[in-house]
Nucleic acid binder design. Structure first.
Length: 216
DNA sequence: GGCGTCAGGCTCCTTACCTCA
DNA sequence: TTTGAGGTAAGGAGCCTGACG
């Protein structure tokens, strides 16, 4: 619940950084440096926080560093701001509020692309970090693409089914035409032989010849 | 102008967390 | 109460592009 996130006390025991492993798998491999003990009970007591939760190695890209710092310096006067910085104390799953999501959705419907100005404006407007807005748009695009892929798959599946049916029908038709042709050619052979007087008449063949002729 | 480097964007895949049946 | 599935925020790798020296 977002409401519960208000005083979420994720106790990050980061003293020394040796024993504290907030992210069970991947983060273990990173040079995580945790300088502060996060012990925030309410947003307005948040000011002393000073955490490098990304723990980027030297020489690696640090494209989000400004935004993280931004987050650490934010005034925390309402729930959504606290929400935006919740994972400073570890990888805490945060949930955007309904209002935040619906506003982002609205913006996405208007224009799925996100330029830096729009990103920062939205972030400010919704009390989120620019990175969060960026991630939301990325995931939203991915969802759209997935839905589209599913829809395309359904269309192709239907198309495939109808083509298979058509294929079966045509095969049957070919089969019938072949059998009719064989029937006709054998009956003409019979009449030729009868003319020559070299064959005895078969009543069943005669009968089938007449029915075939009726059908044509 | 060509080249190397860097920053920032994107997609894709994956992980971790949360919710709900 | 537990558990598994589904949804989703976020991390990371790899690629591309534009700016800059």
């Amino acid at each position: 619940m977002e409401e519960d996130g208000y005083c979420d006390t994720k106790l990050g025991l980061g003293l020394g950084g040796e024993s504290y492993v907030p992210w069970p798998q991947k983060q273990k491999e990173k040079p995580v440096v945790r300088l502060d003990l996060s012990f925030t009970l309410c947003p307005d007591q948040h000011d002393s926080m000073n955490i490098d939760y990304h723990g980027k190695a030297e020489g690696t890209r640090s494209k989000y560093s400004d935004e993280d710092e931004e987050c650490g310096n934010k005034k925390r006067s309402d729930r959504s701001i606290d929400n935006s910085c919740m994972y400073d104390t570890g990888r805490k799953k945060l949930r955007l509020t309904k209002d935040q999501s619906s506003y982002l959705e609205e913006c996405f419907q208007r224009h799925p692309a996100l330029n830096p100005a729009k990103k920062h404006a939205l972030a400010e407007q919704l009390n989120l970090k620019p990175r969060q807005v960026e991630v939301w748009f990325q995931n939203r695009r991915a969802r759209t693409k997935l839905k589209q892929t599913e829809a395309d798959f359904e269309v192709l599946k239907k198309c495939c089914e109808s083509l298979s049916n058509e294929n079966r029908r045509l095969k049957r038709e070919v089969q019938e035409l072949r059998s009719q042709k064989i029937g006709r050619s054998s009956s003409s052979l019979h009449s030729q032989l009868a003319k020559d007087g070299t064959a005895t008449k078969c009543p069943s063949c005669e009968e089938s010849t007449t029915t075939d002729q009726k059908n044509w």
